[in-house]
Design a protein around this nucleic acid. Structure first.
Length: 153
DNA sequence: GCCAACGTTGGC
DNA sequence: GCCAACGTTGGC
């Protein structure tokens, strides 16, 4: 089982939205590197839910990967912000994963705190200039994160 | 097949 | 709003 970190702007979709819905389609990924990471996920993997563009940004909860390589429906919707005219139903360019809510952590672990605990090599999210919305987390870093974050609530 | 330009993303 | 990072695109 691998660990990941997935970012979402809470104004667009927050951990509370996921708690309410139970599962969600993680769609709208339009960055190739993030998409490629998402394709290497496996069902049963865990993902840290990270609030980006928040004050402060940081890890707020934990999810489980349910399904991967699902076609992202928003790419075909002309009304959608994520509409991609270059994509076709025959050759879809973007896919997505289904994630399940596992829980909140008692408190947000901020990016500042993460930078104090982890080097840029240990945890990609603290790397200066990193803008990826989906990142792998090593088993060792995941174990330390879970220890810092404490039990799910 | 090189490589400049583009698009996406998010911290600041 | 700037800019850093980088996979992909596309002109040649």
């Amino acid at each position: 089982m691998a660990y990941w970190l997935m970012k979402s702007e809470p104004e667009a979709y927050s951990i509370d939205d996921l708690k309410r819905e139970g599962t969600t389609l993680w769609d709208g990924i339009r960055n190739y590197q993030a998409r490629n990471f998402m394709r290497t996920m496996a069902a049963g993997d865990r993902a840290f839910f990270y609030h980006s563009n928040a004050a402060p940004p940081g890890i707020v909860g934990l999810m489980e990967v349910c399904e991967i390589k699902l076609v992202d429906p928003s790419q075909f919707d002309p009304e959608s912000h994520y509409f991609d005219p270059a994509s076709s139903t025959e050759k879809p360019r973007w896919d997505c994963a289904r994630l399940r809510y596992l829980g909140h952590f008692a408190a947000l672990l901020s990016l500042d705190a993460l930078r104090q605990q982890f080097s840029e090599d240990e945890l990609a999210v603290v790397r200066r200039g990193n803008r990826l919305s989906i990142l792998p987390v090593s088993d060792a870093s995941a174990a330390r994160l879970l220890e810092l974050l404490g039990p799910l609530v």
